[in-house]
Design a protein around this nucleic acid. Structure first.
Lengths: 187, 187
DNA sequence: GAATTCATGTAACTTGTTACATGATTTA
DNA sequence: TAAATCATGTAACAAGTTACATGAATTC
């Protein structure tokens, strides 16, 4: 299970509340991992029971009180152990609900697929824009003192994001060209 | 939920048993969708309750009896409705457990990441080989009478698979080059 | 004063995974 | 005759999603 270690990794940079973690997920990590607030609070609870984090209620500078979580030494060694033990078969979850529809699209025909693929292409282009945003956020953060050490890892992470979106855009464009050409054949 | 419609789509080509469906998943669909046998049987049951499929026990030509599932008319219109109603936000599940580790690898250092990335690259190359296998299986199947109609959809589906693996291989190679160069900098 | 954001949670549900049980048939 | 494959399932669990509840503080 990856999520608790994701949380642990973020808390290892600095203590924070569940709400803060959620925001980091939403605006930086989102392109390779996501989590619901309910799930985050649930996992933080489990981590505390395990002794990997401790929490303490503090008044928020603005807004209501916060329960601030900090990583413990056990948490740090747990995180490291997890990072060093990489099972061979872990990885991207390949489930692609759109591709399943493409695969079955003989049931609705080429015109419909062209229509859906055009929508998809627009979506991929939006994804690219969002990634650019993430990029600027990360490079800002990396300029803070003591953070530049993390830069190479973030660069590689982000780069995966760009490779991914770009490959989607290329695929959608190629597919559209191909579909249009087979459509003309039949005409 | 996509899985039941995946099953429905396959049953719409020809009636078959849960075991047969599992095999198709494992050796053709695997690169964009996967399912456990237990899940398949569970969903087939639900589909039957819903009236989307009917089943009938038939003696297997070799081996034990089979429960053969056939799609009903309701099932066919359910499938079509699903294919025509594409929510904007569906799509690839981006969760990438390996990338999460990369993102947090400042905790274990560059050498460790290089080691892991090399293993990953080998895995991606194996993925590429498996895709070639899928490709040959699909093109065989598409040569059967009445099946050539599905060819364009399968080509596009497979093409996504190749774009995906290739983008992973490129990323891993670039990342390794980058990591090696930053390692020499520090030396 | 109303709407939005901040902040933490609970409950119920859905989807996916793991482990196990069973028994027939086929191949080595 | 032992091992592998064929075939169908059940039970328990893990992970992720959706819906809801609550209330304070801030912004419009």
């Amino acid at each position: 299970m990856s999520l608790p270690f994701g949380l642990l990794g973020l808390l290892n940079r600095s203590p924070m509340a569940g709400y803060d973690l959620k925001k980091i997920f939403d605006d930086s990590i989102n392109f390779f991992w996501s989590a619901q607030t309910s799930q985050i609070y649930r996992e933080l609870n489990a981590l505390e029971k395990k002794g990997y984090v401790v929490s303490e209620i503090k008044p928020g500078d603005k807004g209501p009180d916060k329960r601030i979580y900090s990583i413990t030494e056990e948490g740090q060694s747990g995180l490291k152990a997890w990072l060093l033990d990489v099972p061979d078969d872990i990885g991207e979850d390949n489930r692609n609900a759109f591709l399943l529809r493409v695969f079955l699209s003989s049931n609705v025909g080429i015109d419909e697929l062209i229509f859906q693929m055009q929508k998809r292409l627009r979506k991929y282009k939006k994804d690219l824009q969002r990634l650019e945003l993430v990029k600027s956020r990360l490079s800002e953060y990396a300029q803070m003192p003591d953070k530049e050490r993390e830069l190479p890892y973030w660069k590689i992470t982000l780069s995966r994001g760009f490779h991914d979106v770009e490959s989607h855009i290329k695929w959608a464009e190629e597919s559209l060209a191909y579909l249009q050409s087979t459509r003309e054949e039949t005409t």
